[in-house]
Nucleic acid binder design. Structure first.
Lengths: 196, 196
DNA sequence: GTCTATAACCCGATAGAC
DNA sequence: GTCTATCGGGTTATAGAC
């Protein structure tokens, strides 16, 4: 079963949006990368923005199979899973000379007045990520103090990753990403040792 | 002394880049907002990107007078200064319905393959911010454990702010920003009480 | 230094045959 | 479903008078 045209368009757009951003990717770029003609794209999608919606939906459905499962392979401890996920983002930065970060975050900051449907899907992607990490901290149980807000801790992990990617991408160095993750690790360690 | 044409262009571009981003702001937008004609802009600047360079340079020179001094007015304690600065970003989000965040961060993620001069100025802006916050943590002296890396802590504060802005802008709610800053505050509190 | 007009180009989207 | 050709409009930047 060869990949159908629609999937080829979405996949090509996903790669291009991650590499160059949404605004800097032209429909012609997508057509060329997908090996498809304009008529086909506009047969499946009303316009460029609807391609973005399909891409964001693909990211959303891919959170578990494409993001979390690879990162968590062989890692059972819930707290280690949080840092295993961050380590996967580090590898993405490392293997692209600090060029490739989190595509959701990039698009979220690129679009200043996004269409409501786009903004909704961006938010859903963050929520999916946060739910998974919150669950890790919940599963950590009494290794963390009871009064520590698991959801807020998940948000903190996300800001650490996104902020670290932003600064590392800007100075083309992993220092900032590593500094931020190291501080988060120290914080979580101190929480684990609190009250013992 | 009326503001000269060049300054009007840079100021108008600064506002527009912050509101709509660099790519979505046309030269015509800048001309209209500045009340200036195309010939004037291209007399002072070789092109649009050079206007961006001037804007980033203005942000860099404005870090102390425009950003830090207002945030730190009446705040002497170095650690409180860190959170006073974060509170100022919160007010910017709040007063714009979570639309306006950090313009440097937005541009940093919008431009995927920035001109070296642009990337250099973005990095310098981050460095200026980090130097100031690092200095706060240094001035905190022995209120923080000696083995805590002051620079890394400053990076952590920056990722908290930038990541918090990103997520709050996306879901148009201050929850994420507040969660992240609350966690950072808890971490700093625990550091202050460590070893006592 | 400032103005108007316009060149030269690229964009997203469409039309209509097949 | 797919193809080619093209429309209409917005873009950055320039030319040349003043």
């Amino acid at each position: 079963m060869p990949p159908d045209t629609k999937d080829k368009i979405v996949y090509a757009a996903m790669m291009l949006f991650a590499q160059k951003g949404y605004g800097s990717t032209s429909v012609a770029d997508i057509l060329h990368a997908a090996g498809v003609n304009a008529g086909s794209l506009y047969y499946f999608f009303p316009g460029k923005q609807d391609v973005l919606l399909a891409v964001l939906d693909a990211y959303l459905r891919g959170i578990h199979p494409m993001l979390l499962e690879p990162a968590w392979k062989g890692v059972a401890d819930p707290i280690e899973r949080v840092f295993a996920l961050l380590a996967q983002y580090r590898r993405a930065l490392e293997s692209t000379e600090c060029t490739y970060g989190c595509p959701i975050g990039s698009i979220a900051l690129e679009l200043h007045e996004p269409d409501p449907a786009v903004r909704q899907l961006l938010a859903s992607n963050f929520v999916g990520w946060l739910n998974a990490i919150e669950q890790c901290f919940i599963e950590a149980g009494d290794r963390l103090p009871a009064d520590v807000d698991r959801r807020a801790l998940a948000v903190f992990a996300l800001t650490t990753m996104e902020g670290g990617v932003m600064i590392s991408r800007t100075d083309r160095t992993l220092h900032a990403f590593d500094d931020a993750v190291r501080m988060l690790r120290d914080y979580v360690n101190r929480l684990q040792h609190a009250g013992r």
